[in-house]
Amino acid sequence: MKHLQEKAQSKPLGESLIVQTAVRMMIPFIQLFGLYVIVHGHYSPGGGFQGGVVLGASFILMALAYDLQKTFGYISERTNAILGSTGALIYTGTAALCAVLGGYFLDYSALAKIIPMNPIDWRSMGIFLVEVGVGLAVMNIMVSLFWDISSGGKMDEGL
């Protein structure tokens, strides 16, 4: 038992081949599920917020199993901030566009003046647009919060 404990303590903290392999296997499916939850949000339980959290959690899992530098290879700080702001812009932009075109705020049927389509179809499509925006914003803000908190703002190795 003593021997096992010393062996475990001599390794660099948090590096484990089993965990890293399992995480590498799971992350594509987690991200696929996150996209599924976002785009299926108006038919079934889920939506932009939940799907964004699942997508963000996949990056957090990667940061926990490897380190922060590995996640920067997939989504840099700059891309992260830009995508997060774009998500918020898509959401408020769609909502404000409806108000500008003569409907209420978030009344998607007003968008039929841009692309002529049945107003009921536009309600379904509008929810989809808004959910993509919410998903992007939630995912990137969650990842950004985790980066900041886990490395104390230094963005080095993380936990």
């Binding site: 404990q5 475990a8 484990s16 089993i18 965990v19």
Partner: peptide, 17 residues
């Protein structure tokens, strides 16, 4: 069946360390 054994392994290793 992939995630649960991995989580158990990680918790055990954390406890050992």
């Amino acid at each position: 069946s992939v995630a649960s054994p991995t989580a158990t392994h990680a918790i055990t290793e954390g406890a050992l360390i």
